[in-house]
Each structure stands twice: as C-alpha cells, then as structure tokens.
C-alpha cells in the first residue's frame, strides 16, 4: 500500500518541477503550458491517491475535476489568441 503513496509523491515532485517553469517562463504561453501540465498531474495524482486510500468515491472527484478544470486554460488561450 505504501508504494502508491510513493508514486503520488513522485507525481507531486513533478508538479514542483512544473512550478519552476511557471516561475522562470518569460512569456505568458510558457506559464499557460505549465498550468496545463500541473492540471494533468493533479488529476493523475488524485487517481493514484484514490487507489492508495481504498475509496471508490475519490475517483469520481477526479472525474469532476478533469471535466471542470479545462475552462481556465480555454479562457486564457482564447485571450492570448487576441480574439474579441
């Protein structure tokens, strides 16, 4: 059971590495890609933690999260495109 927590810890370490790109990124699209990467990694680590805690209801949280969280990325990308 501890190996799942180790896997989730490694995923969170990758989130920290993506935060470095959000710090250093010179332009806004770099930071947007870092946001999207962190989004995907958070969904993956939520599913891994759902396996680690042995709870089925936690997987539904990850599904709702994956459905809702792309809206922010969509709005920022639409702004950076320069549309109306």
């Amino acid at each position: 059971m501890d190996v799942w927590f180790l896997t989730a810890g490694i995923l969170v370490l990758w989130i920290l590495i993506s935060c470095i790109r959000a710090i250093l990124g010179p332009t806004a699209p770099d930071r947007l890609v870092a946001l999207d990467t962190i989004n995907t990694l958070v969904v993956a680590s939520m599913i891994i933690l759902g396996v680690a805690y042995r709870e089925v209801i936690y997987i539904d949280v990850a599904i709702v999260y994956a459905l809702l969280s792309f809206v922010a990325t969509l709005y920022i990308a639409k702004y950076l495109e320069g549309g109306p």
Binding site: A22, A28, R31, L35, V42, V64, Y65
Partner: peptide
C-alpha cells in the same frame, strides 16, 4: 503581468484542491 498573476493563482487553486484531497475532504476539493 496580470495574465501571469491569474495563471499563478490558478496553479495555487489546483494545489489547494489537491491539499484538501490529501486531507480526505473530497467534497471541499470538488
């Protein structure tokens, strides 16, 4: 750059949601 501020606040909100999830409050995380 206010776009960078909004993106950074979005990352903060994602990580806060993950922290609620680790503390086993999945409804607050939703």
């Amino acid at each position: 750059d206010l776009i960078a501020c909004a993106i950074s606040l979005g990352i903060f909100s994602f990580l806060l949601s993950l922290e609620y999830y680790i503390l086993q409050a999945p409804d607050v995380a939703i």
